[in-house]
Design a protein around this nucleic acid. Structure first.
Length: 641
RNA sequence: GCUGUUGUAGCUCAGGCGGUAGAGCACUUCCUUGGUAAGGAAGAGGUCCCGGGUUCGAGUCCCGGCAACAGCUCCA
């Protein structure tokens, strides 16, 4: 019998007979390890416990707590789900069922719509399957036999999947008990390894992700190897949902979205404070970086949109209107307006780069199903800017914007990831221009050493873009900042500058936003801080809480003093106990509470309580004011106790 | 837009089998003047999302809209 060498992660080498399984190796290394681990990786590629080793390999074992281990387990979870569904609904056809972040799903085609009660039944059946502890085994079939096999079982979707597999790909099946599924693996060794499972929700999903195809039912679930981990996960999700900007927005009375205007948010007084602070900050930072500010109209003649290409490439997202006999459109983007401002006069090459910023209100007809609080709306303010420049200025300008975005996001304590979106199918311009533009963005990213992923075909219709994505409370990511390089609009609008040679030349254009949209950015902001805004953004920065009526006058004096210093302060002179007033202020996430009773009034002090750090003790009124102003000016982030 | 779920007081929610609505919080008034997360009492407050239909009678049953939520697709 021939022997093979298995090199383990720690460098030790062992010899085994050819055909040894990963599980046997694990058992051999340490008796019991096979219970603690779930599979392995060979050269970084995950493999099952049941995988047999045919030649010399480097093997590392995957444990339950590893990310890879969770994927194994959840993949098996999705098979258990499919098995349970087939037991309860034998006519159901299976599509695909992968592991995803935090769980798994399975797409199922059946006329029976799954209700929440059905999910409970299915989950109960899954627990039975887990208890039955079926061994998971793998087998391969030649292509024809594989197709016959799934056809025989009426799994039409699987037929399609096999037909689309590459010619030489092995076609593998996984079996657990009576259930067999086409699957590349890897899997947990047995269904009993899945110790905790929970079905989360059902939703529609198109077969192969195309809305032209039939909509299937997707059941989402999650699985863990310990019951306690599942509970932790559910608790965490519960906790995260408390940060939902829609919930906090209502509780703190920041904004609302009414039935009368789906996707058109209303900003309340306290929400406006945040908006205005952000805009003030935005203006200050833009002036510092050499931007001018403009404002262009919301409604413009239809011809303009023909010229810009929006008519051909963006029409289904636009709102239209009529004025006198003329056709007009509500702007979905600010660029054409900016270009008209550029075109009003002749610029010299000495004026470039010309950076024109605009807090521009745009309207886009988004499909009803995609609206989501402030994150996805139908009218929003882009913190836009268009940079007109010479070809040799491209790289520096892009880098300048990348640094600008980084500066702003870091200031809020955000983590972000970057994507580079390339040419979409519906687009204009030549491939050379697109290649050039894409390459310029790539170079700038590389120059800054930023990691990014490529988002194929997701660019704007006029150019490729760099996208900056921020996370919400439950880990969904939202595109905020973006930098788009555009060779098209300058041509379409025939804009020029006069070069050193006295001739006309075509400038190149960058479209960019930092916040993305003020609305979305506020949504992210709310979830990021869970409503506990830094002092400079807090709608109410301080609340004065007098102990009883006889302290009202001194409290009013302090309120006056703070207001005059520009601090947003409220006085709670309701006839309530101090504990009650503190509770309310705390729930409203007011950064500072100033308690005034006999002691404080007598000594011209306040007893300061911080939202994040609790009681801070008596502070002299003047000192207090100075420290508040400092904290606001420095835009300090909240400090936890 | 598609699939599923939901829509009752300002907010969060109850209302088995059809008989014109209830709780807690918030609000108003009174009592209480209380020192770091809810003092007490009384009161006011509802086109039960909208429009049809069935019925002697619809918050409840049927049909059609609208909106929200989860996901898909699409995007800042």
């Amino acid at each position: 019998m021939s022997m093979i060498k298995v090199t383990l992660k720690d460098g030790t080498v062992r010899e085994y007979p050819k055909g040894v399984t990963v599980q046997q190796v694990a058992e051999d290394i340490s008796p019991g390890l096979a219970r603690a681990a779930i599979g392995g990786e060979i050269n970084g590629a995950p493999v099952d416990y049941i995988t047999t080793l045919e030649s010399d390999v480097e093997l590392s074992l995957v444990k339950f707590e590893d990310e890879a281990g969770k994927v194994f387990l959840r993949h098996t979870g999705s098979h258990i789900l499919a098995q349970a569904v087939k037991r309860l609904y034998p006519e159901a056809k299976l599509a695909i069922g992968p592991a995803i972040k935090d769980g798994f799903y399975y797409d199922i085609d059946t006329d029976h719509p799954f209700t929440p009660e059905d999910l409970e039944k299915i989950e109960a059946e899954m627990k039975k399957i887990i208890k039955e502890d079926h061994q998971v085994s793998r087998f391969e079939l030649p292509r024809d036999e594989a197709i016959d096999y799934v056809k025989k079982h009426g799994e039409d979707y699987k037929v399609e999947l096999i037909e689309d597999l590459p010619e030489d790909a092995p076609i593998s099946f996984y079996q657990q008990g009576e259930f067999v599924d086409l699957c590349a693996g890897p899997h947990a060794p047995s269904t009993g390894r899945v110790k905790a499972v929970k079905l989360m929700s059902v939703a529609g999903a198109y077969w192969r992700g195309s809305e032209k195809n039939k909509m299937l039912q997707r059941i989402y679930g999650t699985a863990f190897d310990k019951k306690a981990d599942l509970q932790d996960y559910l608790d965490k999700m519960e906790e995260a949902k408390k940060r939902d900007h829609r919930k906090i927005g209502k509780e703190m009375d920041l904004f609302s979205i009414q039935e009368e205007g789906p996707g058109f948010p209303f900003f309340h007084p306290k929400g406006m404070v945040i908006r205005n602070e952000l805009e003030n900050f935005w203006r200050y930072e833009h002036v510092k970086r050499g931007y001018d500010e403009i404002k262009t109209p919301i409604i413009l003649n239809e011809d303009l949109w023909h010229q810009s290409g929006h008519w051909d490439h963006y029409q289904e997202n636009m709102y239209f209107t009529q004025i006198d006999e003329g056709n007009y459109a509500v702007k979905p983007m600010n660029c054409p307006g900016s270009i008209l401002v550029f075109k009003r006069k002749m610029y010299s090459y000495r004026d470039l780069p010309l950076r024109m910023g605009e807090l521009g209100l745009v309207h886009r007809h988004e499909m009803s199903g995609v609206l989501h609080g402030l994150m996805r709306v139908r009218c929003f303010t882009q913190d836009d800017a268009h940079i007109f420049m010479l070809p040799e200025q491209i790289k520096d300008e892009i880098i300048g914007v990348i640094d600008f975005v980084d500066y702003v996001y870091k200031m809020f304590g955000y983590k972000y990831h970057v994507e580079l979106s390339t040419r979409p199918e519906d687009s204009m311009g030549t491939q050379e221009e697109w290649d050039l533009a894409t390459e310029a963005l790539r170079e700038a990213l590389d120059a800054r050493g930023l990691a990014y992923k490529i988002n194929e075909g997701d660019g704007a219709f006029y150019g490729p873009k760099i996208d900056f994505h921020l996370e919400d409370c439950i880990g969904r990511t939202w595109q905020c900042g973006t930098i788009q390089l555009d060779f098209q609009m300058p041509q379409r609008f025939d804009i020029n500058y006069v070069g050193a040679d006295g001739e006309k030349h075509r400038p190149i254009m960058i479209h960019r936003v930092i916040f993305g949209s003020i609305e979305r950015f506020i949504g992210i902001l709310i979830e990021h801080f869970a409503g506990k805004f830094p002092l400079w953004l807090a709608p109410v920065q301080a609340r004065i809480l007098p102990i009883s009526e006889r302290h009202y006058e001194a409290a009013k004096g302090l309120q006056q003093q703070l207001s005059e210093a520009g601090i947003r302060v409220e006085l709670d002179d309701r006839n309530e106990k101090i504990g009650y007033k503190i509770r309310e202020a705390q729930l409203q996430k007011v950064p500072y509470m100033m308690i005034m009773g006999d002691r404080e009034v007598e000594e011209n002090k306040v007893n300061l309580r911080s939202r994040d750090r609790g009681e801070l003790g008596a502070v002299d009124a003047d000192e207090l004011m100075a420290s508040l102003i400092k904290e606001i000016k420095e835009k300090q982030l909240p400090q936890e106790a």
